[in-house]
Amino acid sequence: MASTGGEEEDASELKLGEDFLKAKCLMNAEVALILEKKFETLQQLSEDASSQFSQVFEKSLQYVKRFSRYQNPEAVKQVREVLSRNQLAEFEVCVIGNLCPETVEEAKALVPSIAKKDRMDDEQIEQMLADLATIKKYE
């Protein structure tokens, strides 16, 4: 089985290959905002808009709509702020933003890299998850 972009790739250790190392990651909620806006603009331009969208676009839009944890653009911004404050890598920010782990154990299982090299202790992780839960509650 050929691996994409070299043998080293492993998201759990943040090895994403050079093309994506510095790329900006997007949470599902952010992608939903971008795609919906594009969808609306194109629909206004022409009546026969549905035929203009590729299957990839439609599938992605459906997917991000279904799995967006935050609907409100303000909330999405706040989530990013909370996560960025904790010096997480872009990729980690987005995995947590997408999956919304509820416990420290879960967060460490989903994003093993946050617990490595003493980057964050359990208390810090717990505080971060609590902050996220608050945003979701008052969205």
């Binding site: 790739e9 492993d10 795609l35 999956l99």
Partner: peptide, 29 residues
């Protein structure tokens, strides 16, 4: 905007087909 899956990545998906060999799921494209 691109969608690129990575080995080791954890994501959510929707099941599209189930058979005795396993199941297929879709995550975006």
């Amino acid at each position: 905007v691109v969608f690129r899956p990575f080995k080791g990545e954890i994501l959510e998906s929707v099941v599209t087909m189930v058979n005795k060999m396993g199941f297929f799921a879709e995550a975006g494209p």
